[in-house]
Design a binder for these strands. Structure first.
Lengths: 347, 347
DNA sequence: TTGTAAGCGTTATCAG
DNA sequence: CTGATAACGCTTACAA
């Protein structure tokens, strides 16, 4: 019914295997027949059946993407489209296709991954988030199935190929940026401690504080459940301390937007009354009021390197496990200034 | 090497075909052997090879997603993660998997689609954007391959199954909302006219204006290349007209954020000096300053219905072409107010 | 350099 | 209700 390799063979007057070899661009086939076959393919509008090919060759030239739970608010973060672009570019360069799995719960996700792996739909998997206790990782490791993680694994750091930023360093840099501006009362606002990024960034913050000889105040640290209600409260409480911070590092621009909002309601001006450094340098950092100084973590590159190294791993099965660190840099905009010389009035 | 249907057959003491039937849950197989086989599968950890299955059955239980060009800034819009959630939910309900294609240019995208369709990787395709002259649509139509479009097709509206909002109506509603508040000088800010949504929304705006007997001013209409530089200029110019608008409808929240920004720089307050209605009701509409009144177009539902109806089409080949219209509603927040009684000072 | 033929792991058509 | 056996469309030794 559909045009197959045999039809092409007949038309070109060669054996099916020859056609197959032409497709694979085998070096040991005469230029003459190559042309003949190619023309026949053209004439018939031939396209290889990928299922047949995959079945016979035991490989698929496809990567599986594991997205975070779709119930997660974080899913809305523009981080994902961007990282996806990177992955896609890396894959396309090597002619790999992308297969996607999502799910509403951890269990659904794991099931989808198993189906796709055991079903031999993909040759490797890239994980878009690293959670603290990740069953998907355990599964993949146990089966020795090629995969790479975007972010840092919770454990077995040495045994899992991953691409990540140096988040400790990045947040340390951000904090020190504020310290250099003259701030010493610096608050930290981060997301759930279930995410490794948060843990790392918090650590970087602490390092900077300690290193500068500022005393670390526990009440300067907030973990809001991303944004929404809870966050508002927390920020409010923070600003009503007797000595509220004069600067804030926020672990994500999206979150920073919410913070900006709350601050505005409280009548606190940015950057006059308080300075803010965001993270990720999302497009919306530019669009915020005021435009946010933010740490650019090169999201696209994160994705690009992930698919690149996954493909390497697939094509060379005993590639060593690697850890790729993507660089970051602070992008200065208008949300930071030197602290007021006088004590900031509160209450 | 891998455990196959044959291994299961041997262990369960039945023929391979029987195992296959058990997998398909064929009604004409005794409960006894069903159990026996299932246990064998369990014991061996059997998982069907999907490539083999697809090859033999001439169908894949997979949907293809066609994303917009990754070079597009619009790709960053949180619209996509959300619509994807909807698609994914609809697919998962019917046990369909998702295959994704992207590309940096229209050509790359078309090639990817052809490969995936002819390669028989998917049973149907959902298109996430509708462009004015869409080669992908032409291709799919010519091959009579099942697909559904999210948005409105440029032509052949009657022959293409699509799920969309009534964007004309939605924008008319938004505009009339402002009119009811007392505004008569209302500006329109939209994206590229290459996108059908923009065309529709512009039309809705015009309808409302005409219907209210307000005279339509051409200089109240702006098409910025989404956001960035160009947009800023345009908004600036708009506000420096002798009679600047007292209200603005903006075709996308993301864009509205940029507008808000420019307005702020100009020292124009929202909603005191000017009212704004956004579109799409993205998460960030809530986080904007002030929180944006926005038209919720039910993005998730758009995706959900798309995959649902695509699957219907796949499973019942002569399903009639359908047009699904998803409802919208205005979500009031703080970006609108009645116009100042006095003329707004400009300069 | 090219052809022959045996898989790859399922499903589906016949019989029985 | 169950078992042979022929596809499905391609790759890949092994021959020639």
């Amino acid at each position: 019914m559909n045009v197959t390799i045999k039809d092409v063979a007949t038309l070109a007057n060669v054996a099916p295997s020859t056609v197959s070899r032409v497709i694979a661009d085998s070096p040991r086939i005469s230029e003459a027949t190559k042309q003949k076959v190619k023309q026949a393919m053209e004439e018939l509008g031939y396209h290889p059946n990928l299922n047949a090919r995959n079945l016979a060759s035991q490989s698929t030239k496809a990567l599986g993407l594991v997205m975070p739970s779709s119930k997660d608010v974080g899913f809305q973060n523009p981080f994902f489209p961007t990282v996806l672009q990177g992955i896609s570019d890396g894959a396309q360069e090597k002619n790999y296709a992308l297969h996607m799995t999502t799910g509403k719960s951890e269990k659904e996700i794991l099931d989808a991954v198993i189906q796709m792996v055991q079903g031999k739909r993909v040759d490797g998997v890239v994980l878009l988030t690293s959670k603290v206790k990740d069953e998907v990782i355990s599964y993949l490791k146990a089966r020795e199935f090629p995969f790479v993680l975007i972010g840092k694994p919770y454990k077995d750091v040495e045994e899992i190929t991953h691409v990540d930023n140096d988040n400790v360093r990045a947040m340390k840099d951000a904090t020190e940026y504020l310290i250099k501006l003259g701030h010493s009362q610096i608050g930290f606002i981060g997301g759930s401690l279930d995410l490794i990024v948060t843990v790392d960034r918090l650590q970087g913050y602490k390092k900077a504080i300690v290193h500068a000889g500022i005393d670390a105040r526990k009440d300067y640290i907030i973990h809001q459940e991303f944004l929404r209600e809870g966050g508002q409260e927390a920020v409010r409480a923070l600003m009503q301390l007797e000595h509220p911070p004069s600067a804030l590092v926020v672990a994500d621009d999206f979150m920073a937007l919410g913070v900006l909002n709350t601050l505005d309601e409280l009548g606190i001006r940015v950057p006059e009354d308080i300075s803010i450094v965001g993270f990720n340098n999302l497009l919306l950092a530019e669009l915020a009021k005021p435009p946010l100084t933010s740490v650019d973590i090169n999201i696209f590159e994160l994705g690009y390197q992930a698919s690149k190294s996954l493909i390497q791993k697939i094509e060379n099965r005993n590639e060593p496990t690697k850890r790729l660190i993507i660089s970051h840099r602070i992008v200065e905009r208008l949300s930071c200034s030197q602290p007021n010389s006088g004590e900031m009035e509160h209450k």
